[in-house]
């Protein structure tokens, strides 16, 4: 059971979280102009990193916020945890 550093709530049990998979998979800005191959990569292709891996978590049973972390998939050590900020929250 991981101890996940929520940027808003501090370290919490993995029980409270939902894993959102690999982070920084940007949605193509113009899907209609995106070719099949590129679209398939966006939808389905994910890396399977051994080592430091960027991933998204949702603190679903906590503050309800999505955030990004970088986790070492070998040791499970969290390297960083960052909130996803909106413009109105400042950056």
């Amino acid at each position: 059971m991981l101890l996940i550093p929520c940027p808003h709530c501090g370290p919490r049990s993995e029980l409270e979280f939902h894993c959102g998979g690999e982070a920084h998979i940007a949605r193509p800005t113009n899907p209609a102009a995106t070719g099949d191959q590129r679209w398939a990569e966006y939808l389905f292709y994910r890396s399977n990193t051994k080592g430091v891996h960027a991933e998204r978590w949702l603190h679903v049973h906590g503050c309800g916020r999505w955030f990004n972390v970088r986790r070492d998939t070998i040791s499970d050590r969290f390297v960083t945890a960052d909130q996803i900020r909106s413009a109105e929250e400042g950056s």
Partner: peptide, 9 residues
């Protein structure tokens, strides 16, 4: 919530 927070904040 996922789209609101992560795609269209």
């Amino acid at each position: 919530e996922e789209y609101l927070q992560t795609e269209w904040p």
